[in-house]
Amino acid sequence: MWILWLLACQQPFGIDRHDLEGTRVAALRARTTSEGGVPVVHPEAVFVQGGRLWADEAPAMVWGWVETPDALGALGAGWEGDVQGPAPALPLDEDAGWIGLIASTADGAISRAALRYPVEARPELGPIAVSRVDDLTLSTLEAADLEAEARGAWAVTPEGPLQPGDIALLGASLAEGQWTRWMALDGAGTFAELDAERSHWIAGEVDLDAIDTATRSPVDPGVVSFLTLALDPSGGSDFALWDLAVGDAPTGLFTATGRFLATDTQVSGPWVSGTLVADDTAHSGLRLEGTAHAAPPDPVQLPPCAPTGATSFDPNWLATARCTRAELIGASVWVETR
């Protein structure tokens, strides 16, 4: 029986779990605040739409409490839930156990997601550490190198610049028992997880299961968007969206949250101001023009979709569907840089 199962074969699917492609909820997290002594939950989702981390049209997002994730399967776009919108305030219902989300896009695609809440522990993702592997590249990698023990011994240079074909070590710092998941927009590059907190990322495409015979092709120079997901065994989660330059990056800046924002001129400094314009080639869908060094005024003027209390524009507002690109085009913003 098992022998024949081994002889059995299956065509590989086009997309693996490391690829941020298509339209789907890619990550969820939630935190609790107290409003007038009443606990309120603030859920948030990373929503990939058409393989992009931005959209011109907001998805309809309905949130509500459900007893199990499976209960969402019977609910459709007509579900009213408890609250609506991309980052709502949801009165806590401790008996329900799960926060449910149904997101519908204009083309009729429906995504369902659920998050256990409350949980015993919620991971706190700090900055993602990126190092460059010193002595190996995509072209020199061999099957024997891929053993976890061997990979753990690779020498690295912290924060070393990456070129196409280089290998990076990505790492997060988490509590004992928590673990990470790593994803890249467009399925860029190749991941090889090392342990619960770290993963190698090869700046190139290669089938690691058949590395001795597989075609190897470096990624194009530019910016790669990553999603790092942190999970706790109790069901808590956190995520970080961040960008990484590989080779010669386009003109732009890295925000304090680690996202890349294309600009018309190369600027630097703790704060940069400018006007957002549409740019389909940019990972955030936007480019900052008319840039200048300027600290934000007090009070700062931000688009209505911006979160309360924000001072710096963050491309993650689009990735979490808090803002549509259309809402931001023409907006004057201040950006805190890294």
Binding site: L28, D70, I110, R112, A114, S237
Partner: peptide, 16 residues
């Protein structure tokens, strides 16, 4: 017919 994304374990549950 589809799936529900379980954000607590980064897994997908089928919708039959």
């Amino acid at each position: 017919l589809g799936s529900v994304y379980d954000g607590s374990s980064d897994a997908w549950r089928p919708i039959f």
